[in-house]
């Protein structure tokens, strides 16, 4: 099948095509899903190299599960978000058990904030604040407010109720607001309220 014809196809259809031996479907899925998986893994981990490892592992699991995939079962992205979150949580638990002291302190952005774009500084500040949240709060906030998913889909990914999702995102946002409130002036946060 021509590669261009795959642009309109759903992730689920492409996965079935891949399982049937279509190499172009794998390329299309790689281009479409890997950036999303990588972005999500980075937001949950705050570490580029670890996020790459998690992304490769999550995609490998997707290739392996392809022959057993049932189109009516779930969305590929829902499945991937769940796999990524589980891999990230496992990684963070292992890292916590190994050496807390070895984790570098977040860089003080005050000295460099004037030199870099304000928007990038905000993204970086948010990532630092996200890193301080408990795993489940971080996951819920990222899925809701950065990935832009609806609460029922987040509930499916996290295997909890929508009420629990709302509670996690509310607590997460309160913690983020508290963490970022001290950096309002530096990041131009007060100007846009």
């Amino acid at each position: 099948m021509p590669f261009d014809a795959m642009a309109e196809m759903s992730d689920e259809t492409l996965l079935v095509l891949f399982a049937n031996g279509d190499g172009a479907a794998a390329r299309a899925l790689n281009l479409r899903l890997t950036p999303r998986v990588m972005g999500h893994a980075y937001r949950l981990l705050g570490n580029h190299a670890e996020a790459e490892d998690v992304t490769q592992e999550a995609m490998l699991r997707l290739w392996k599960i392809a022959p057993e995939w049932r189109q009516d079962e779930a969305k590929v992205t829902t499945w991937l978000y769940r796999v990524v979150a589980n891999l990230c949580i496992d990684l963070r638990r292992r890292a916590r058990g190994v050496a807390l002291e070895s984790i570098p302190e977040p860089e003080d952005g005050r000295a460099t904030a004037a030199e870099i774009l304000q928007d990038a500084a905000r993204a970086e500040a948010l990532q630092e604040a996200l890193d301080q949240l408990p795993d489940r709060q971080r996951q819920a906030v990222v899925l809701r407010h950065i990935e832009g998913l609806a609460n029922p889909e987040i509930a499916e990914i996290m295997e909890i109720t929508t009420e629990a999702v709302e509670s996690l995102t509310a607590r997460g946002k309160r913690a983020l607001t508290a963490a970022l409130s001290g950096r309002q002036e530096e990041l131009g946060y007060g100007d846009e309220r």
Binding site: G39, A41, T55, H145, I146
Partner: peptide, 16 residues
């Protein structure tokens, strides 16, 4: 206040 941070995070996603 958080929306500007979320917008910034979406615009600066880590890329593979």
């Amino acid at each position: 206040g958080l929306e500007v941070f979320f917008d910034a995070a979406r615009a600066h996603a880590a890329e593979p």
